[in-house]
């Protein structure tokens, strides 16, 4: 179903660029070229299975929507009041959610029937609990980081003491927020989604690694990395001792 992603994508574009471009100063140069890019990229929704559709729809559309208002005449704060920014955030989340659902491949197996709780083996229930915990963790951990960065009174006081003007504080907060988003996305991709995908593929990579590990273990000797680490540790200790003796 591509109606919702298309509607939300267009709404996001209208809120972010369309209305400010109508009400504000006329954009010029590269911004003018970027203006119609997001609606054009939304055409990929017609072919969700096409190569690169995920990249274009999940990354390209939000980037093409927000890049023109990063700087220049359309970036003026008057054109982006707080309620509109909150609405933009909600529409962006809705767009990403519905697009992800539209891009997900259709299940090839028939719909599963629900078993009564008493018939579900304990290990399956434990697995479902782990998945639920992961969902909760994916919501709570970023929310906590956001609170610590944007709302915590101690952090706000530290910002006020370190940076004088509200503009600089806002700039530092925006940069820190971007770094936080990047950090969380990377951690989510490699440490949460990665192991889950690997598990869905029957842990073939892990099984191959364990087989290699067993072959190595039969020799009873550690890998060269162990010796490298030990040599580096001993060298660092020697340097530390030398520094203490001859400051």
């Amino acid at each position: 179903m591509t109606l919702w992603p298309a509607a939300l994508g267009l709404n996001l574009w209208l809120l972010t660029i369309g209305v400010p471009a109508l009400l504000g100063p006329r954009p010029r140069g590269p911004v003018l070229v970027l203006l119609p890019l997001a609606p054009l990229l939304l055409l990929w929704l017609l072919r969700p299975a096409a190569r690169g559709a995920r990249l274009v729809l999940l990354l390209g559309v939000p980037l093409a929507t927000f890049l023109p208002v990063l700087d220049g005449p359309l970036a003026h704060a008057m054109l982006h009041p707080r309620p509109v920014v909150a609405l933009q955030a909600a529409v962006l989340i809705g767009y990403l959610w519905t697009t992800s659902r539209a891009l997900a491949p259709a299940p090839s197996t028939p719909p599963a029937t629900t078993l009564p709780d008493s018939d579900v083996p304990w290990r399956w229930r434990r697995r479902v609990q782990i998945y639920r915990l992961l969902v909760a963790y994916s919501i709570v951990a970023p929310a906590l980081l956001l609170y610590a960065l944007l709302l915590d009174p101690e952090t706000q006081r530290a910002f006020r003491l370190s940076f004088e003007t509200p503009e600089r504080i806002a700039g530092v907060q925006a940069a820190a927020l971007s770094a936080l988003a990047l950090l969380w996305t990377t951690a989510f991709h490699f440490f949460l989604a990665g192991p889950l995908v690997s598990h869905l593929l029957h842990d073939r990579t892990t099984a191959a690694q364990i087989a290699t590990l067993r072959r190595q273990a039969r020799t009873g000797r550690p890998r060269p990395q162990f010796y490298i680490a030990m040599v580096l540790a001993v060298l660092s200790m020697a340097m530390l001792i030398h520094r203490s003796l001859f400051p």
Binding site: L213, Q216, P222, R223, Q225, F226
Partner: peptide
């Protein structure tokens, strides 16, 4: 180095 030894211990 401990991690390398842990691999061996696990295997």
């Amino acid at each position: 180095a401990g991690g390398e030894l842990a691999r061996l211990a696990l295997a």
